[in-house]
Structures are given as structure tokens and as C-alpha cells.
Design a protein around this nucleic acid. Structure first.
Length: 520
DNA sequence: GGACGGTGAAACTTCAGGTTGCCTC
DNA sequence: GAAGTTTCACCGTCC
């Protein structure tokens, strides 16, 4: 390094950032956990002395993106007032958006982040400071791959503004510095391995290839995969064939794929009969659902219909058990009691039996109970702060899970339709709306109105306006007192038109206008 | 003497990320 | 495995 960095504090990350600011430049600081990102941002914000009116306004904007700010929002606002932000998957997406935009504009000078910002996002800075090179993995702390380092280092230097950029790796000691130099700067990036070999991916691909009639026979399937990067790496053709055969067997067993045999198959194809997707398999492929998930859901629905399961929790649990919901957040020590209690209470209604506590699956089963609890809390109108405090699930993480839940519920609905579980259809639709808006069942009617979310629906309900009829009958002035004149007039218009239409609304249809309403 | 507050060592807890599907009368 | 947080013992100060 040409000029030494002034050692203004004992924290070398802070020193580097302060030096960057003195140069009128921006910095990204990469750390290995969400908690660290927040802490580092907070420590930095105490030193930057950047407060301005612009930042104050920005901080207020960031703090109020949710119905009710969580302490995460407040913490972010405090940092941003000093020109520093933290950025990780736990932020509300609106907050991430604003931070990225304001960093590009130069209002925010420093972002402390987890590797989120290294991938996909085009957010360069003069300095890319890589504080942590170790990350928690399967075997405790491990060095991050060279590829990850390169991604982070690659954020340094803004092509339009800077002639160069600086990527800085932090080491505490000389030997460590030597090690990092060798490992990352002189080191070769890891080889890239095909992800196709992962069973869920393979299952999904084979089914969609057959459903799209891109391939028909086993030999065509083999030929297709033989040309992939995966096969190129795999080399062992026999083993490859064995894996594909196993997948084909499963897809048949689950009735997503059929072998055309006997009279349907031309003589030439007797030894290599064509496969075709069943109607069900076709739909599973269209939904991009992992066939295993579709199979799990089918089993669960069969059971749910037989046992006349009621309530939303068993469904939330079975959906939390799918691969699509992974990774699950672990059950923390202090949550263990709470989750176990819930499991004991709900066990008899759950659609998948509790494994023995010695079973390796037990942990993930319990984690699914935890996720189902969180989703249920949301559907019971608990706010983000409660969920963050109780389960350590941040708003951004909650949103991700909710959006997957919505997709899975939709998929469930489609499967139930095809498999003629007609009694379930209405329940699934209700669950989908409840999850989407985070409301109890009693608000389903009000939530349909444009301009009405969970907060306003609850206000109406508390004031004895409990369904569309009530909205129609109540005086407009009263509505205006509760929700403002503009919305009151809109509501009156909505119920007026609707009620005139056919006299009764389909209570569980999703209002089209509200589809894009959530401020994600 | 006791309440309070500051300090630091020890014990304890937790740990990155994200794409698919519908639909707008 | 290590950072960050919580707990707790210890000590000094003030009333």
C-alpha cells in the first residue's frame, strides 16, 4: 500500500473506512454474519461524523417501511443518519432497494454487508474491505472459497468514476497475511461443479424434459444427459445411468410418468419404450415443483382428507417440510421449550408423523414445526417485531418464506384440483389469502377491498365493521373518520358496485387489483 | 451500610444466500 | 472456531 492508513482507532476496519471517507470515497465492508454486519455498521456510525439533513430524511424513510418498525429498522436508521448502512437478507426488500440506490447516488458512504452484495448486484465501491475470510459451515469455521473472495474483491472500483479500486483483505498478524496472500491473491479459483447431480434438480429436470416431450425414451434421456457438463465431469457412465434409472423409477412410482407399453409401443421401441408425463406429472412440471414435494403433498392431502384435518397449522407444517422451504432456521436453545410444547399440542393433527428423537430427521422435523409456528403467528396478525424478537427471524427472511409459502399453496391448490380433493380447495384458498396478507380468518372478507391491508382491516373490525355488508351499510362519514375521506369514498364505491353486481361476492376469490399491492 | 454504576473476565449462544408460479375482471 | 452478548463478580463512589 502506498500511503499508510492513519490508525485513528484500535479497529483496523474502522481505520480503513475513515481513511476511505477522508479520500471522499465509498467502501463496502464484507463480514460473515448478519449480526456482525449490524454491529460493524453501528461501531462505524459512531465515528463517521457524516450527519446531514439528507441522511436524516433517508433514515426516517428507512425506518418506516413496515407497518410498525422493528428494532432492526431503528438500528438501521441510527446508522444511516451517519452515512453507514448494513445490508443482508434480513432487511425488508424496500430497505435493501433504498440502500442500494442511495449508495449508488453517494448519499450512503459505507455499507457493511454479508456476501449478499457480492453476488448479482452491481454495486461497486472504491474500496472493498473483506473483514472476514472465514465463515461458519458444516465443520465449524472454514475459509471461504477463492471464488467468493473474487466476487467480493470484484466490487472494488467503479468503472465510470474511479480509475482504479482497492480490494483489501484484513489479517491480524504477518503469518496470517502471508497465508491470505497465498490462499486468495495467488490462489487458483476452485473448479466449478455441476449442480445437476443434486437429486432434486435431476428429478425436476427429467420430469420436465419428459413433460415437454423433449425426450421420450430412456436412451434419449441418457443421450441428453450425456451431453451435459455434469456427465462431462462425472465420467462414470454406468453410475450416471443408475442414477437416472432410479429417478425414472421414482417418477413412475409417484405416477408422474408412465411407460407406454404393449400395443402403444411400436415394435422398434419394445426394448426402449417411450415415457410420457401423466396429466398430474405435466402440471407438476409446469409448476416447477420438485416431484418429491408434489408426492409429499399428495400423501398429506390424502391423509388430511381422510382424517378431516382442520386448522391451518398442519398445512403450514407439511409445507415447511418441503425442500422448497429450505434452509430452515435452527431451533435455538431458548426456543426449544416453546417449539416442543407446540409439537406436543399439535402432534395428533400433523400430516407427517413425528420421527423418533433419535432419528437424524428429528431436528429438521422440529425446525419445520418452528417455521410453521412463525408462519402461523403471521397469519394470526403478529407483527414483524414480535416474530423477530421471539424467533430471531428478520422481516426480510419472513418475506422470503411467505412468498414461497404462497407459491406452495398455489401448487397445493392445483394438485388438490387435479386429484379431486374438492373439500380442500376452499381451505387452501383461505390459507393463501391469510398468509398473503397476514390476517386471521375473520378478516378475509374485508381484506378483499382495495386499499385495505391487515392494519386497516383490523381497524374496521374493531369498530364493528366486519364484512362487506357492514362497509355498505355504515355511514361514509364514519368510514372517513376511521380511514380518511379518500379511502372511505373508494370503499363505498367498491362495495356499491360489487353488491349491485350479483348480490354476493365469492368470498375467497383473490381480488385481482391487490395482486401487486404488497410493498415488497 | 447499602444502593448504584462501571469494568472486565468468563460463560454462553449463534452463525450467508434466494430462482422458479399464478394473475390484472 | 470466533464474534457478539449476557452474566456475574468485584470494586469504587455517593448518599
Amino acid at each position: 500500500m502506498q500511503t499508510p492508513i492513519p490508525q485513528l482507532t484500535r479497529d483496523s476496519t474502522i481505520n480503513l473506512v475513515l481513511d476511505t471517507l477522508a479520500k471522499k470515497k465509498q467502501a463496502l465492508v464484507f463480514v460473515n454474519s448478519k449480526r456482525s454486519a449490524e454491529k460493524q455498521a453501528e461501531d462505524l456510525s459512531k465515528k463517521t461524523k457524516l450527519e446531514s439533513h439528507e441522511l436524516k430524511v433517508l433514515a426516517e424513510q428507512l425506518q418506516s417501511v413496515l407497518d410498525k418498525p422493528t428494532h432492526q429498522c431503528e438500528r438501521l436508521a441510527l446508522c444511516v443518519k451517519q452515512g453507514v448502512a448494513f445490508h443482508h437478507a434480513g432487511l425488508a426488500s424496500k430497505q435493501k432497494e433504498i440502500i442500494e440506490e442511495q449508495f449508488r447516488k453517494g448519499t450512503i458512504k459505507v455499507i457493511c454487508c454479508t456476501p449478499t452484495l457480492a453476488y448479482g448486484l452491481d454495486l461497486p465501491a472504491f474500496r472493498s474491505i473483506i473483514r472476514d475470510v472465514k465463515r461458519y459451515g458444516h465443520r465449524g469455521m472454514d475459509f471461504i472459497p477463492v471464488l467468493d473472495y473474487l466476487q467480493m474483491a470484484g466490487r472494488a472500483g467503479r468503472p465510470k468514476f474511479d480509475a482504479w479500486g482497492e480490494a483489501i483483505l484484513l489479517a491480524d498478524t504477518e503469518p496470517e497475511a502471508d497465508d491470505l496472500l497465498e490462499r486468495y491473491i495467488q490462489g487458483e479459483p476452485e473448479e466449478i461443479f455441476s449442480k445437476l447431480a443434486v437429486e432434486p434438480v435431476l428429478r425436476t429436470y427429467i420430469l420436465s424434459l419428459i413433460a415437454a416431450r423433449f425426450v421420450r425414451t430412456r436412451s434419449e434421456i441418457m443421450e441428453f444427459f450425456g451431453r451435459t457438463f455434469w456427465a462431462h465431469q462425472f465420467e462414470d457412465v454406468d453410475k450416471l445411468a443408475a442414477i437416472i434409472d432410479k429417478m425414472l423409477r421414482l417418477l413412475q412410482e409417484w405416477e408422474f410418468v408412465q411407460k407406454a407399453e404393449g400395443e402403444f409401443a411400436p415394435a422398434s421401441e419394445v426394448s426402449d419404450p417411450p415415457y410420457r408425463a401423466t396429466f398430474l406429472g405435466q402440471r407438476v412440471a409446469e409448476l416447477y415443483l420438485d416431484p418429491l414435494t408434489a408426492h409429499q403433498l399428495r400423501k398429506a392431502m390424502t391423509r388430511g382428507a381422510e382424517e378431516k384435518v382442520t386448522g391451518i397449522f398442519p398445512w403450514l407444517h407439511i409445507l415447511s417440510r418441503t425442500l422448497e422451504m429450505r434452509p430452515l432456521s435452527g431451533v435455538r436453545q431458548k426456543e426449544y421449550e416453546l417449539v416442543s410444547q407446540k409439537l406436543a399440542l399439535a402432534e395428533s393433527t400433523l400430516l407427517e408423523r413425528e420421527p423418533s428423537s433419535f432419528d437424524p430427521e428429528y431436528d429438521s422435523y422440529l425446525e419445520a414445526v418452528k417455521l410453521a409456528m412463525i408462519l402461523e403467528e403471521w397469519c394470526e396478525e403478529r407483527d414483524e417485531e414480535f416474530i423477530l424478537e421471539t424467533y430471531n427471524i428478520r422481516p426480510g427472511e419472513l418475506r422470503t418464506k411467505l412468498s414461497r409459502l404462497d407459491w406452495l399453496l398455489y401448487a397445493c391448490h392445483e394438485l388438490a384440483h387435479i386429484l379431486q380433493f374438492n373439500d380442500l380447495l376452499k381451505e387452501i384458498r383461505k390459507a393463501r389469502i391469510r398468509a398473503k396478507y397476514g390476517v386471521k380468518e375473520e378478516l378475509l372478507s374485508l381484506i378483499r377491498l382495495e386499499g385495505i391491508g391487515r392494519m386497516r382491516a383490523r381497524i374496521l373490525w374493531r369498530n364493528s365493521i366486519k364484512d362487506l355488508g357492514d362497509v355498505k351499510n355504515v355511514e361514509q362519514k364514519r368510514l372517513a373518520d376511521l380511514l380518511g375521506a379518500k379511502l372511505a369514498s373508494s370503499l363505498k364505491k367498491q362495495v356499491g358496485e360489487d353488491v349491485q353486481g350479483d348480490g354476493k361476492l365469492d368470498q375467497y376469490a383473490l381480488p385481482a387489483e391487490k395482486a401487486g399491492k404488497n410493498n415488497e
